[in-house]
């Protein structure tokens, strides 16, 4: 029973850990499928976490936090588009600029606003009668069923009691699939990532498609950041994204730029994080695996995949290449 309980706990943590990765990886999917390399997910998560926590603190409403977080992330995404699409800037450099700018601005402005070393105040505070954090959603009868063996663990512990954003993340996966593979916008977006010149000659504005793609990217990355600051921790602290944007990028590659497989990659990486958090290591086949190895496993796996040792990850063809009308 103990083993069962700890598995439930790990799976429960897996869902929590995977949520921001799923949002961010889907965000990256929209941008990369449109041909824009996105190493800027990290910065977009961070800026939305900061804006989300700040707005939630000032308004007292987590939903206002979500709105503000998404707006901030969209602004950064549009800056990303301005650099990479309008001015044909290098995608990698633009992404780095956004990450570094986000890291600096959130800390400097945060310190100016709240004078707490870059942190926002806690979003739940008795003294201020403030509760601006998302509330967990408890499923009907969850409490009643909690003590039922097996079912209680799965239903009450694993499935019930998460923040609404967790459920939204998993809903977003089929939704994004539908948008990318069943709508006109998705068709055009995927075409843009493969051959922008063909898209242009088909009478579609590459610029418009890529701006829109980054707009959606910004919205989704906003969910990831707000989840971290307004749901998971109820506070912003500098650099709280802690590499999640890069891990989401790894998951996107590991999932071969497809929604379902990307979600599975996020769950895998979330599970590894959960295992690493729970123990000082794991015993696998009688060997003690150091916790640092478990932590590094998502990156190692992605490198192994990129090396073509387990399947092949084929990126959109036009990714990373600014679209310039060539002189005939």
């Amino acid at each position: 029973m103990d083993a069962f309980n700890s598995i439930i706990l790990i799976l429960d943590a897996t869902l929590r850990n995977a949520t921001p990765l799923i949002f961010a990886a889907l965000a990256g999917m929209f941008s990369e499928r449109a041909g824009i390399v996105n190493i800027a997910l990290e910065g977009k998560i961070l800026i939305s976490a900061f804006a989300g926590a700040s707005a939630a603190y000032y308004t007292g409403s987590p939903w206002m936090g979500l709105l503000a977080g998404m707006m901030a992330s969209v602004m950064f995404a549009q800056l990303h588009a301005f650099a990479t699409v309008t001015h044909n800037g290098d995608h990698v450099v633009s992404g780095l600029a956004i990450n570094i700018l986000a890291a600096g601005l959130t800390a400097a402005v945060g310190n100016y606003w709240f004078s707490q070393g870059g942190n926002t105040p806690n979003l739940v505070s008795r003294a201020d009668e403030l509760n601006a954090r998302f509330e967990p959603i408890v499923f009907p009868f969850a409490e009643a069923l909690a003590d039922v063996p097996i079912i209680g663990g799965i239903y009450s512990e694993l499935l019930s009691g998460h923040y609404i954003l967790v459920y939204l993340a998993f809903l977003a996966v089929p939704l994004c699939w539908f948008v990318l593979f069943r709508t006109r916008f998705g068709l055009r977006l995927r075409a843009t990532g493969e051959n922008p010149q063909a898209v242009d000659t088909a009478g579609i504005s590459v610029t418009k498609v890529r701006y829109l793609a980054l707009l959606v990217c910004g919205l989704l990355a906003g969910f990831a950041g707000v989840y971290l600051a307004v749901a998971l921790t109820a506070q912003f602290s500098p650099n709280m994204s802690a590499g999640k944007g890069y891990m989401a990028l790894a998951a996107l590659i590991f999932g071969k730029w497809r929604p379902k497989t990307t979600m599975l990659a996020c769950l895998l990486f979330g599970a590894l994080q959960a295992i690493a958090d729970r123990s000082q290591g794991a015993i696998i086949l009688g060997f003690e695996v150091p916790v640092q190895l478990v932590e590094a496993l998502p990156y190692i796996l992605t490198v192994v995949l990129l090396g073509g040792f387990i399947g092949r990850a084929v990126a959109p063809k036009a990714i990373g290449k600014p679209y310039v009308k060539e002189r005939a």
Binding site: R182, T183, R184, L187, V199, I204
Partner: peptide
């Protein structure tokens, strides 16, 4: 169809 779609859904 690309660029000459008849509606929002493909």
């Amino acid at each position: 169809v690309l660029g000459a779609e008849s509606g929002e859904l493909i």
